[in-house]
Design a protein around this nucleic acid. Structure first.
Lengths: 193, 193
DNA sequence: ACCTGAACACCGTTCAAGT
DNA sequence: ACCTGAACACCGTTCAAGT
């Protein structure tokens, strides 16, 4: 299939893409560097021309994951309309992303890789949405937007993590992501409908 | 050191204990079944008389972890006194546990093992504390105790997870666990001092 | 500059054999 | 019943050598 010179300088990106494909199939802890190389038709030593080790490849994948998360949150955050709906849409998008990209999400937040952005740009979207909600008196203004955004992020992130654990019925985490996000945020923040 | 018959039927528990010791030293993804056996002076096949595979040993460790978490929450949950303080103490204890038992906590919530209790008994403690807070009008009564407890758990769990990622300064997750729990809960739930 | 081939120590797991 | 010894395929990583 692939000739010997197929990856003319593009092996680095091919490694990242193939890793994402494997993550979508198998679990992120089943991932093997040798398998990626095998599937791309290169030797098991080839990846080391582009990444110093297995961990650095996963860091690159996680970084693309943070970018993907940002682009999933953007449409939800960009809408005008009332600030309450905007905040709930963002929450739904966050939990939906975790649900739809299980293994990528776990790679982003569970794997031990060097310093990752940890969703810095996504966090800015949340701060803006929270600030707007505070100005519209949908959220209380006694906490700074940064602090409120951090707290909301914790709630959404914990929700996403617990959903991914697929717990038993008794905890009720088996509802659709958007519904869970709305229920959790309205309960905690006492948002009136 | 250890004679050949040292583990007279107690190898199972010794494997669990040694795994916990390794977790405290190294990371939970650095853990190797062979190393546990080596440190206990048994062959690498010996563990398979007590666990069908590596995953099942980690499940046993996680189960002990859930028990430890329960015992860490109990004193915080048991206190009489006002319901607001009780809820904040429980939150602090949860995040403190994650902080003090990093690798065990990750084993409990990140590793892919068979169905674990997921802190069912701990969840009951939280439901009781939430119900008491609702009756004292510290928390709103428009949501059921179960639903409110689930939401509070999500917030605390997300907080714990994000603390464990050791993010940069900008997110502010580098404060003491108890302080973070109090700040997050009071911000979200609008608890008055 | 980028990749191969062969090698290293290590891993999880199996299985016949020992007591 | 419980453990050993040896073996298997596989893994991450290194390095001299090829183009």
């Amino acid at each position: 299939m692939a000739s010997k010179t197929y990856h003319h300088g593009a092996l680095r990106q091919a490694l990242i893409d193939e890793t994402k494909a494997i993550l979508a199939e198998r679990g992120h802890d089943q991932f093997s560097l040798n398998e990626v190389a095998r599937r791309l038709g290169v030797s098991s030593a080839a990846p080391y021309r582009h990444f110093t080790n297995r961990e650095e490849l996963l860091t690159a994948v996680a970084t693309e994951g943070y970018d993907l998360l940002y682009r999933a949150l953007q449409p939800a955050a960009g809408g005008t309309g009332d600030p309450r709906e905007r905040l709930l849409r963002m929450g739904g998008a966050y939990v939906r992303f975790a649900h739809d990209h299980r293994e990528l999400f776990m790679t982003m937040f569970h794997d031990r890789h060097g310093s990752t952005p940890l969703g810095g740009e996504s966090f800015d979207l949340l701060i803006a949405a929270v600030a707007a909600a505070q100005q519209a008196k949908v959220l209380p203004g006694n906490a700074s937007p940064e602090l409120m955004a951090r707290s909301v992020w914790a709630a959404l992130h914990g929700l996403a993590e617990l959903v991914l654990r697929r717990p038993g019925k008794r905890f009720g985490f088996d509802a659709p992501p958007e519904e869970l996000a709305v229920t959790t945020l309205t309960t905690l923040l006492q948002l009136e409908p």
